[in-house]
Design a protein around this nucleic acid. Sequence first.
DNA 1: TTGCTAATTAGCAATTGATGCAGATAAGGT
DNA 2: ACCTTATCTGCATCAATTGCTAATTAGCAA
Lengths: 140, 140
Amino acid sequence: MRSPEELTVAFRSAGLKVTPQRQLLFRLLHDNSSHPTADSLHSAATAVMPGISLRTVYQTLTDLAEMGELQSIEVGSGSLRFDPNVSDHHHAVCDGCGDVHDVYVSKAPVLRGLDDFSVSDAHIVYRGQCGACSALVATK
Amino acid sequence: MRSPEELTVAFRSAGLKVTPQRQLLFRLLHDNSSHPTADSLHSAATAVMPGISLRTVYQTLTDLAEMGELQSIEVGSGSLRFDPNVSDHHHAVCDGCGDVHDVYVSKAPVLRGLDDFSVSDAHIVYRGQCGACSALVATK
DNA sequence: TTGCTAATTAGCAATTGATGCAGATAAGGT
DNA sequence: ACCTTATCTGCATCAATTGCTAATTAGCAA
Ligand SMILES: [Mn+2]
Ligand SMILES: [Mn+2]
Ligand SMILES: [Zn+2]
Ligand SMILES: [Zn+2]
């Protein structure tokens, strides 16, 4: 995702308006690697701008996704997560704390059973334990 | 997933009862490679046994999953899909018709960015076009 | 067979994440 | 400053799933 300043320009030239709510979300999302949900973003936004609507958060996330500034991912946590990192990568989800980490995969594996199917995209979800959660279990 | 006959024994010895509703679902799921949703299963079941409740379908699917007889997968179609194939495999989803196909991956790819995380499971979702949908587009 | 009892079913309420809708508001070009 | 149009908020709605419970029934035992 581009910087809040660049997004301001991009939104205006797309005929979209740049509101305080959107600027706040631009800032909250920029360089955010926590893969937040709409709800967690709304909480963070509310701390700065009380009264901001969850509906507005959803709306802005949808706009950003349509502009290709972020991707939405589904890792089985029940709700969509939003990722300003739009590079080609995958995710590891900790079964302990639920945190989502970025994973980069060197090379596509060889497939079997996929005759007559043209693949345009692949997304891998790894599950396991992050370092912190492994340590917790060990000390118990 | 085991055969309806074997499941009958397994359920009884687990203290669970074998009802006509469950037997029907055993049959509908056995060797079913369509990755059905709870709702599509309920439709299929209703055709044979009018009045069977969607709640019962969910309940039986949960029981079977807890017994390890089937797995539930999430491929971004909004609802859970159930898979009596519990072997280690992945899935390809057609963006045209939504059909879900099994994919077998030879060997785990090399990962980067996963320091300090122990992976216990991985699931790959491929997206693309199945043969039938590619053909449709070609003839248009 | 018959009876007992715990498991199951069906129906409906409740929950959750997300989207539809509309009147009030405000961005931003003129 | 003004006007048009996009946006915001609050609320209704929706879809998938789970919670709850009275009525039913499977399966064991007498
Ligand atoms: Mn990511
Ligand atoms: Mn499968
Ligand atoms: Zn963790
Ligand atoms: Zn298809």
